[in-house]
């Protein structure tokens, strides 16, 4: 019940600013209260406990924290959680289906696209966005698209192979079902 008149207690008036935001994370709508200064990466990792999103540099340089915002890769350490209000966020946890891996994940497995695995979630999400837009990229296009994601293990050769593998697999699957092309 709301009353027509209510004095706001002093303590509440001085309280930290909090905003309620609704974000669709991996297909599920989540409504959370956050302080505006909370970074999207921290909301995802600490708030929603989706720790697949890694923070590497925390200085906007490495791309480990990459998530998809409405399908486009963004650095979640360089965005406020409040800014995701009303938007769709995909993290690495949202890549796989119920029972099977996403072709990009399969590619990384098959072509040994990871060593320590730290950069992998960001790499895979950037790769997914690329393939959604360009199902048949050249090696150069893959390298260009991934150029904002750093791999401390320097395993770029296999990362590129993994993405090309995934592209091929996806095209084959699209061919089988008659979709695409």
């Amino acid at each position: 019940m709301t009353s027509l008149f209510e004095e706001v207690p002093r303590a509440e008036e001085d309280a930290v600013p909090v905003r309620t935001v609704s974000v669709t994370v991996n297909g599920e709508r989540r409504t959370v209260k956050v302080e505006p200064r909370l970074l999207l990466a921290h909301m995802i990792r600490h708030g929603l406990k989706l720790t697949g999103t890694h923070t590497g540099c925390d200085t906007s340089n490495c791309g480990a924290c990459t998530v998809l915002l409405d399908g486009r890769p963004v650095k979640s350490c360089t965005m406020l959680a409040v800014q995701a209000d009303g938007h769709e966020v995909t993290t690495v946890e949202g890549l796989a289906g119920q029972s099977e891996l996403h072709p990009v994940q399969e590619g990384f497995k098959d072509e040994h696209g990871l060593q320590c695995g730290f950069c992998t979630p960001g790499m895979m999400l950037t790769a997914k966005a690329l393939l959604d837009e360009n199902p048949d990229p050249t090696e150069d296009e893959v390298r260009w698209a991934l150029s904002g994601n750093l791999c401390r293990c320097t395993g770029y050769q296999n990362i590129v192979k993994s993405v090309l593998w995934a592209a091929k697999k996806q095209r084959a699957a699209a061919g089988e079902t008659g979709a695409g092309e």
Binding site: G63, V74, K75, T78, L146, S147, G148, N149
Partner: peptide, 9 residues
Amino acid sequence: VADPIVRNR
């Protein structure tokens, strides 16, 4: 300008 991910924002 910057890198592809930064360019998206």
